[in-house]
Design a binder for these strands. Structure first.
Lengths: 333, 333
DNA sequence: CTTCCGCGTTTTATCGATATATTGAGCGCG
DNA sequence: CGCGCTCAATATATCGATAAAACGCGGAAG
């Protein structure tokens, strides 16, 4: 590997001069600069970032730690990237193992320290694990779980979103709406969405029957599909489905289609996240838009503030949502 | 920050002993080890990975460089991650700018050097840019463009896949099949898929009319939808659509549905990539399955070989594909 | 009783850059 | 002619760890 010292020797100057030329820190004479640049070209020198990081204490890199590279997180990451780059830093994605146990083990605190800042998606992390993360490193948490007070945190208006979607379907005639992917469990990640569904039902004078809260084995389309098929087979009457995510909604749509149920004629369907695909899947999936751009801006903004040395109290942002009505509910385009 | 030296002082030993305890390199006496561990706990010491990287020359990290975190690459990355982790390394994703110009500028060679190995997706990179990348770093390229001989490369059986999909639709009755997202341009990334479409047409005694090669503005569902709408508006008669990717196929499906054309009754539709969602989008999108797991294994395998010091000639793997028949073509489930 | 050996531990050198202090050359001005 | 001033360039110390060699000590071999 060609080092800065090699360039210095070739150009007949000291290493500091090479450093100064490359980083434009201290002024360097024109002729000297030219000789240095020439040597750099000739030897094909590239700075060793690891060494720079050690000495400078900065990496100019931000990590976005996600549970999986799929779907929602992939789309969110694409929003985050340009914002981070706009401040002259790089963004890298790291994946935590799917299971909570290994999570902070595989992705140790030591590892997080190599970044100037970290956006940490907390799906799958429990409070206790999180509380153990004590570091001065700027961190912003994203996700729908409760988190320790002292962390900056960006979450969605889950309850409000679920309420919007459910109320919309009720207004358009549904009377028995499933909460697909929700769980009766109070500490569950999707609790707020279930509560929004419940409230919307109650406000309309409908029962929020626990039998209509249908958990899924996992938050995939397959999980949604299988849960949906089970409900259909059970004979439980329903005329609307609020799915906790668009991915789950897609599984439900698939099951409904296979069972000869028409959307939105027989059953209205609404999801959450408003993924890119939801707009295009016939008849268009009505979905709660989480304003990924806004979430990304809030998170990166908080992170940037911390990285700039802000030491005020942590902030807990709830990103507003809105309902995008499409063909899977009546009155949609 | 608490350093190894602080731990050493607290435990009354030298830094090397601390290092030896933590890395289990040289044997350390039981009582000494206990004292060291105690000090580590008490001070909450975490190793500084940057310093270790500089000294050790390894980062135990592999980068997967993708054009975007979306869709295909997100799903592929999720396949790659466990394979990399199985060898005791970390995987991080880096995104190149969408445009080819900045690509290797934003993501400099210097940056790639901080990784022990790099999987580089070449969508959007041109040969010339690529040829400038001269480094001893283990690199494996992924993607459908031609690349310099000396790089290891994993690509898909594009022609064969397009052929399979097209021939299948012909067999099931289509006579006028659009090649959506293909380009007449010979150097184009999607050339092989167009050729597969052409060959399948010719073999069936059908014309591969250039008018049926319909480019898209970009490889998104919106791009696919708009191109599809334009074709429908033009009145060009067709009864089948081969879309270059599932994302584009989804856009086409959306346009067809909005135009009252039934799939597969009026128009058969097939895509490429077999994304997770394609299985669930009613009526199920027939797609060329690219065996992401196999691609991931091949790529990581080649990379691993290079990282282990292999210096034989570069390998160019063509990953086999197969057709998954679903409801968007006749005879599908 | 000396010499050698093995084990645990410390010493020293190094990875490749950058921050800070210092040296040195050139120049204006009295 | 010499004093001080500026600007360019160098020397030195440092970031925090690890590799490799040196070292001290007790027991076995000669």
């Amino acid at each position: 590997m060609v080092r800065m010292a090699d360039v210095a020797r070739a150009a007949g100057v000291s290493v500091m001069t090479v450093s100064n030329v490359l980083n434009e820190r201290l002024p360097v004479g024109e002729s000297t600069r030219a000789r240095v640049m020439e040597a750099v070209e000739a030897l094909g020198y590239e700075v060793n970032l690891t060494a720079r990081h050690l000495r400078a204490g900065r990496t100019d890199t931000v990590a976005f730690v996600v549970p999986s590279f799929h779907d929602y997180f992939g789309e969110l990451a694409d929003q985050v990237a340009p914002l981070v780059e706009a401040e002259g830093r790089h963004l890298v994605l790291e994946r935590t193992s799917a299971n909570a146990e290994q999570e902070m083990e595989a992705l140790s605190v030591a590892r997080l320290r190599i970044y100037d800042g970290v956006l940490l998606s907390v799906a799958g992390l429990d409070l206790e694990t999180l509380a153990r993360v004590r570091t001065a490193k700027p961190i912003v948490l994203l996700g729908e779980r409760d988190v320790p007070e002292h962390f900056n945190h960006v979450r969605l208006a889950n309850e409000s979103g679920a309420h919007l979607a459910t109320a919309h379907m009720i207004e358009r005639g549904s009377r028995r709406i499933l909460a697909l992917g929700c769980s009766p469990d109070a500490t569950h990640m999707m609790t707020d969405r279930r509560v929004g569904w419940e409230n919307a039902c109650h406000e309309a004078g409908l029962a929020a029957d626990p039998a209509y809260v249908v958990p899924v084995s996992d938050y995939t389309s397959l999980g949604g599909r299988e849960a949906m098929l089970k409900v259909i087979a059970s004979g439980l009457p329903f005329d609307g489905v609020f799915a906790v995510t668009d991915i789950v909604a897609l599984g439900a749509l698939s099951a409904l289609a296979d069972s000869g149920l028409r959307v939105p004629g027989d059953v209205q369907l609404a999801g959450f996240d408003n993924l890119d695909m939801s707009r295009f899947i016939p008849p268009g999936i009505t979905s709660v838009d989480v304003n990924r751009e806004g979430v990304a801006e809030a998170a990166v903004g908080l992170l940037h503030r911390q990285m700039s040395g802000w030491t005020g109290p942590a902030e807990h942002v709830v990103a507003p949502v809105r309902l995008v009505v499409r063909g899977s509910t009546r009155g949609g385009a």
